[in-house]
Simulated assay, not measured.
Amino acid sequence: MKKPDLDAALLAAHEAGDRARLVTLYAEAADANAQAEAFYLTHAYVFALEAGDARAPALRARLVALGADTPIA
Rank of each mutant, 00 (worst) to 15 (best):
A36L: 08
A9R: 10
A61L: 15
E50D: 06
A16F: 07
D5W: 00
E28H: 10
A30Q: 08
A73L: 09
V64N: 14
G67K: 00
L10Q: 14
A20L: 07
L49D: 04
V23H: 08
A34T: 00
E28F: 03
P4V: 05
G52W: 07
A12C: 11
A9N: 03
E15I: 04
G52A: 11
Y26C: 12
F47I: 00
A32Y: 02
A68H: 04
V46Q: 02
L41G: 06
D18A: 10
L41P: 09
Y45D: 05
A13L: 01
G67Y: 10
L22H: 09
L41E: 04
M1I: 00
A30H: 08
P57G: 10
A58K: 12
P57C: 07
M1R: 04
A32L: 11
A48F: 02
A34D: 05
K2Y: 02
M1W: 00
R21K: 15
N33I: 03
K3L: 04
G67V: 06
A13Q: 02
V46G: 01
F39W: 00
L11R: 14
Y40E: 08
L11F: 11
A51Y: 03
A20K: 14
H14C: 10
R55Y: 11
T24D: 09
L66K: 06
D7E: 15
